[in-house]
Every structure is written in C-alpha cells, then in structure tokens.
Design a protein around this nucleic acid. Structure first.
Lengths: 143, 143
DNA sequence: CGCAAATGAGTTGCGCACAACCCAATTGCG
DNA sequence: CGCAATTGGGTTGTGCGCAACTCATTTGCG
C-alpha cells in the first residue's frame, strides 16, 4: 500500500496557499503597522462599524481567546474604541476611530499586492474563491 | 467608492478554508497526540525518511524557527530521531523511529475526516487542489 | 593556506489560533 | 421573586509562523 503523499492533500494545498497569500500582503501591512488578522478585523469594521466582539468573531470564525487581545492591540494603536453596551453590560461594541476609518483608503494598495502576486485569470480567481468558500462554510461534522 | 468587502477576498476564503479543514482533522490528530503541522512533517518523512531539516522546511515552506522546535517535540514523543550528518556537521537528518513509521497506518482515518467533512465532488476536489497549488507555488513578487 | 562569505540549525520575541478555564451580567424556569 | 443555566467577554497555556538574531561548520576566493 502506498502512503498518502503530502502533495495529494487538499488540506496542505490550502494551507500552503493561504500562507503564501498572507506573505504577499505582509510587506505592505507591516508598513501600516498591521498584522493580517488585524487587517481582516478592520475590513469587517469598515463594513459594519460598532459590531460586538462576538459578531466580529462570527464573521472571522475566531473566538474570544484570539479576538480579545487582537482588538486590544488595535485599540492601543488608536484604530478602534471599545464601548460596553448600555442594554447588556456584557457586550462590547467595537467602534472605529477616525484614524481607523481613514486607513481603509490604503486598502487599494493591499488588493494590488494579491493581483501582482497571483497568476490566475479572472475565471480561475472566481472559481478558486467559490470553492474555498464552500470548504470554509462547511457545517461541523456531526461526530 | 465602495470599500473592499471581506467576502470578496480570495485571501480570506483560503484562510478560512484552511482553518476549517485543519479543524476537521483536529479530533483524530489529538487522539494520536499530534498537531496538524506535526502530521504534515510526518507525511514528508513517511515519503522521504532521513531528510535534513532544511529539506523538510523546503517541502513544507517552513523555516528553522518553526521546524526546529517542532521536530524536537516529535523527538520527545519518540517518533523521530535526529542524527547530525557525518560529512557536514551542520546538517541534521531526521529519521523515523519504528513508532513514527507505524503511525502512518493511522493515516487512513485522517483522510476519512476530510472526505466526511467536505461537500465537494471529485472534479471540484481536484480543481480546488490544483488552483490552490498554483497559488501556493507562486514566486516571490519582485518588488 | 588563510580568511571572508555563505550555509544549516538553533534561539528569542511577538502575534495569532485554539482549548480550557474564569467571572459577571442576563435569562428564564419554578 | 429566586436561583440555576446561559451568554459574552476575558485569561492562561501550548504550539505554530515568522522576523531577527546567534553560532558553528563549510565553502571558496585571494
């Protein structure tokens, strides 16, 4: 019997591709003082300013153990504020500051990083994104 | 102007898909006492026992800062041995122990995790893997 | 040969991911 | 109302990823 080979694995292809694209962003993001997950969090806020931490986590598939310190670092950078909800003291709403909102103007440069980096035509790009989304949104396997 | 939306981003789709598949493996890997990157390293060794650390890193696109401690943990688990090369004292060859070699028999269960988890037909699986590999193997952008 | 440059591996530090906790605020059932 | 269960957020600990560094070995050029 032949052992399964690394390069046959879908999981490794996705893992390597994800890291490769993150690397493509890194230079520009570092200039902005951001990490890649911080950038993703800001994208959610540019769309939906004032979401709660748990809503942010739902959007990014990240739990409080990851997001709590991440948002705190964005706060230290002066990009967001935390405001605890008045109707439910447990909830924390994350609001962009003017600085954080202004940073969305730099996004064009970031998109260009990927366009420059990848060698896919428009159809392939769309197909890859659609298939990856399918995998990303799978329900947890009912064990 | 419309800000770029998170769900339009290829990078986020790949990032989320990769984490989703890793999660699919997690339960079974945890039973085996392995992490996902440790499992990938073992796959390389099942194919190419005795590779050096840098060859292993080339295969997985990981540097010594990640691999050195990872392989040390595999060694502590008794799955691999390190032997420094006789013709070049700098090189460290990583060899499977019998225990480490035997673990490849469990792989079938792991592959089944993905098959169970994902909802892609054979054509989609192959297409996604091929496109992801294309992205993974991109040359560094010449800045 | 002698020595500077390159190479392979390791360490340190930081920021994710994620499991396993904790605690306070809220909900809802009796 | 009273209290147990739930919920939202936070902390701690482990293991990546990766940059930046160190160090010993080896290479190669004069």
């Amino acid at each position: 019997m032949s052992t399964a080979r690394l390069d046959d694995q879908l999981c490794f292809a996705l893992y390597a591709a994800s890291r490769r694209l993150t690397t493509a962003y890194r230079t520009t993001l570092t200039e902005l003082g951001l990490t890649y997950p911080q950038y993703l969090a800001l994208m959610v806020l540019w769309e939906s300013d004032g979401v709660t931490l748990s809503e942010l986590g739902e959007r990014l598939s990240l739990d409080s153990g990851t997001l709590s310190p991440l948002v705190k670092r964005l706060q230290v950078q002066g990009l967001v504020e935390r405001r605890s909800s008045t109707e439910d003291e447990r909830r924390v709403h994350v609001h962009l500051t003017d600085t954080g909102r202004a940073m969305s103007a730099e996004v064009g440069r970031l998109q260009q990083c990927v366009v420059d980096a990848i060698d896919l035509d428009a159809d392939e790009f769309v197909a890859l994104r659609a298939l990856a989304r399918r995998v990303a949104h799978l329900e947890p396997t009912p064990s």
